[in-house]
Design a protein around this nucleic acid. Structure first.
Lengths: 255, 255
DNA sequence: GTGTGTGAATGTCTTCACAGCT
DNA sequence: AGCTGTGAAGACATTCACACAC
């Protein structure tokens, strides 16, 4: 299953921290915008503001890549764009397949940010025979039966799953068996994959739930300017259980 | 990533760790599935496997909510579903507006995972006059001109931005001025918001770039048959997943 | 003077391992 | 005997603050 791995030995000095990797695309976007406006150099302070992080973090992140700045001056925009692109592997072309061409799949297929970042939609795949041949975003949809051939013919190593939850694991298994080693999963399910396959997961529902948590907290705390927040946790007592400011009525929710 | 809140003051002593909050929806989904199969109790080990995390982490997470388990036995499924729902604020109804009804906005409007989790699409808003009145997912699209009125009339506090990048900040400003305090941003741009407004961001392009980074690394190091090679990843990230049992399609993406 | 690069300090998250309850 | 709940240890991430290069 997806979890795993009791042993991950010490990171060799070569590795870039995961948190840093996750921010590189952010910096890259900000730099690209500067590049388009022909801005030659930028300071950590300015770039950090554009990327929405603080400058100390940005400098620390860049320090893992190397010393690409000039003290007293800042960073050369074009040079940094290249270095980050290279580090992320975007100087090469990544063919990608999208499986599941429903509302979401179509939206993804139409997404313009692909080509500009080294990604190319190599194929669209759907299980519905009625979809086969229909062009979406200018690319004809192909049937799931041909999935393996499509992967192999195009040398695809990155797959995007936009199917309903029920189909996701099966699609995933076929993708992996055909040679895909990185998966971006939009289906609301936990995928299990063999070791060495990378899965990232995006789900609207989770994001909204996290927002709801903070939203609820705001509402509950606006009567506590001192920060004493609503009721301390109900340790021990499993009977009473209540803490929210507004006593909500029970009833476990439906699915 | 996602901004937990632009700058949370140091006064956070009673709170649930952000990392834990981000996993609660995951547990909730696994529990909901168990509930539907009428499973009465579950151990931390089993539930952890279903949610794709390890059991120590899960127990620690639950310990922040209270002592809801029974030693030697496990957790009562229904009870936990209720407790987590309440903690996340899902026992109440959250009206949500979606702004920008393009491919992505339509996909979001059609997303089934809303209602099942306490979210209700109160309105769809688009700047294109040609869209006005057209029903998407059974809900008529309204024009941007009426944004403020819609927000106020429906008591909306959560907004979803699915517009092109160029329009996002402006839409955001209007949402915030009208009273929205939580925003889920699908546009590939950094939004600036006043203190007290919570923004989370979902960006397809970033997810793909992170995958490309690891993919490149695998390719570069595949000469390590002894296992010294690249760490098995199976990422979880901060923008992740969830949802209900069958066939919902989540969505995401920038323009 | 200006702004980078980075050790050291601080804070957060995960994992371990076991005491304690059922 | 079994499984939770949690201090303590460890890994990881962020922030501080300043020496150093330009």
């Amino acid at each position: 299953m997806a979890t795993g791995r009791t042993h991950r030995p010490a990171t060799r000095s070569r590795g870039i921290p995961e948190a840093t990797v996750a921010r590189l695309p952010l910096y890259l976007r900000a730099l690209t915008a500067l590049s388009e406006r022909s801005v030659p150099t930028v300071s950590s302070e300015e770039l950090a503001a554009a990327a929405g992080v603080n400058s100390a973090k940005l400098r620390k992140d860049f320090s893992y890549l190397g010393s690409y700045g000039t003290r007293g001056v800042g960073y050369d925009v074009e040079y940094l764009v290249y270095q980050i692109s290279r580090e992320l592997g975007l100087t090469q072309d990544w063919p990608v397949v999208i499986v599941g061409i429903g509302n979401l799949g179509a939206a993804l297929a139409n997404y313009g940010g692909f080509a500009s970042r080294g990604f190319r939609v190599a194929a669209l795949i759907d299980a519905d025979p009625a979809m086969a041949g229909k062009p979406v975003a200018g690319i004809p949809v192909q049937h799931t039966d041909d999935l393996e051939k499509i992967i192999e013919d195009n040398g695809v190593s990155i797959g995007v799953i936009a199917t309903p939850a029920g189909a996701a694991q099966q699609v995933c298994d076929r993708l992996v068996a055909a040679g895909v080693t990185s998966i971006l999963n939009f289906a609301p399910t936990v995928l299990s994959v063999p070791d060495g396959v990378d899965v990232r997961k995006v789900d609207l529902s989770i994001e909204l739930q996290i927002l709801a948590f903070h939203e609820q907290r705001k509402a509950g705390e606006e009567a506590h300017p001192d920060g004493t927040g609503p009721a301390a946790v109900t340790r021990e007592s499993d009977a009473s259980a209540d803490q929210g400011p507004d006593g909500d009525v029970p009833a476990v929710m439906p699915a």
